[in-house]
Design a protein around this nucleic acid. Sequence first.
DNA 1: ACTGACCGATGCATTTTTTGCACTGATTGT
DNA 2: ACAATCAGTGCAAAAAATGCATCGGTCAGT
Lengths: 300, 300
Amino acid sequence: MRYLRTFELIEAVVRAGSIRKAAEDTNLTASALNRRIQGFEQEFGWPIFERLPRGMRLNPAGELLMHHIRLQRTDLARVQSQVADLSGERRGHISIACSQALLPYFLPEQIAIYRAEHPGVTFSINVRDRAQAERDLASYSSDLALVFEPVHLVDFDLLYALPQRVHALYRTGSPLDDKPVLRLRDCLDHRLVLPTQAYGVRNLLEVAATSIGRTLSPAVETESFDLIRHYVTQEDVVGFQIPIGLKPPHNAGFGHRPLAERDVPPGQLLLGQLKGRALPVASAKFGRQLVVALEAINAQ
Amino acid sequence: MRYLRTFELIEAVVRAGSIRKAAEDTNLTASALNRRIQGFEQEFGWPIFERLPRGMRLNPAGELLMHHIRLQRTDLARVQSQVADLSGERRGHISIACSQALLPYFLPEQIAIYRAEHPGVTFSINVRDRAQAERDLASYSSDLALVFEPVHLVDFDLLYALPQRVHALYRTGSPLDDKPVLRLRDCLDHRLVLPTQAYGVRNLLEVAATSIGRTLSPAVETESFDLIRHYVTQEDVVGFQIPIGLKPPHNAGFGHRPLAERDVPPGQLLLGQLKGRALPVASAKFGRQLVVALEAINAQ
DNA sequence: ACTGACCGATGCATTTTTTGCACTGATTGT
DNA sequence: ACAATCAGTGCAAAAAATGCATCGGTCAGT
């Protein structure tokens, strides 16, 4: 979109931090870029950048403008998506901010289902923790968020909430495999592989452990759910995860069982979007598909 | 705003109905304008106009785009208003869709109060009936609506609702002046000056008359509340109006008294904005001022 | 205190884009 | 059949954006 060029250039300057660097990124001369910025500021009525000796930084007016730019861009995308939709072809791009737990099975499966019907739709999947996911929505860089137990819920329109019990993971052959439901204290007697504090599962476990007078001292602490899944096959340790990331069972060298709800209350996997935002057709439809899929899991 | 030029031109073509007429309005040649439209359609990816032998008309894609254009323009105005606000100066433009009843006293007074504090703020007042006011909000051509008993309330964010009893107007010296509250049947024995069916007051009266087995046959029917006010001084007739349009009393050759609530239930004067829309600073502040003023009236 | 690297800004020539003019072909109403 | 519309197009002129060279300033390292 030619008429959005000025906005692109402004964004490039914001990203690069200086006109000269942004000029390289945008295949322009610093002088040309400089004059476009100046020209825009004159039209806009106020400067939007602070001129520092080391470069340019947005001033408060510029911050306000950036919100407008992002809104404007995504709203145009929405319109184009709707137009594509009314001419029959389903096109567009869907951007999702999600927890790691959705990566192994749930999202790949859902995306494949959607793309089978609408091959023109593309996806981007951004792994985000709970706070980042909300910021992604607010800056319009993601359409949908699917995260476990987000902290803040302002500006978040909840589409579905799926309760998820915390599951313990262990090497096949472990005595934990005997019972259908595990007590927290049984798990805490083993060595532990835990996600870091940023994650909801860790949070639930911390609270639960404290309430029975125990503390968590993990043998391995990691940000990677993948590593947790793999590490339990290597050593006799107990890991924890939510079942949506564990769907196909017992053939990967580890087993898993839910923790008793009286020990560790279930958390919630939340699907949502930015409050008040009208999503592009494709994103809205994929959101509805996810709701149906989550309902089906909940009904099991 | 230079970069919005294409949108202005598109709007001009929509308004004029043909490129040639729009070209005159925009001080361009038809050929230049034609090519800008074509250029935009190519960038946008789809035609936005139907080419008819008699000119151009928006196609469905164009209708969707027009919504985007309006949103984008008003959102930019909001940003500029916020920027003006943070640099101390309160500037901007406030656009209000309102019923006639607000014109004589309420709005002039409120606007004067606001402009005394913020002379940089300009106003436009559009007299609209109940349905038009809502359309004005939806198309972003008004920021606030202040109307009596609107019909639809979808997409309407209610800021305040002020109950208003229907008042009867009569020439000074009329026997109606004797009682503090009038019965509907007393009024109906006189000749009547009524607003047309489009107005809320007429509606309330029709319902009330029907329920006591009477029908309304006005001697004069008009769309102008002003005419009603003036006509009652000319002939011994009874007019009707809501008190917010009648504030300063008994020195204009006519008097007024409320109708009994058991005969004619009070209607509501509604202040609202488009649902989910973030108003410019000036409009939002004026809206709050109106709420305070309406509360004060309600408390009397 | 000096120096080199980097920053934004500006004058001027050059390139790119937009516009105006003249004209075409098609449709409609009289 | 004719006049009045309409959108679209080739080409030259006008306008706008860009590149180049250069200026004055700040800062980090020596």
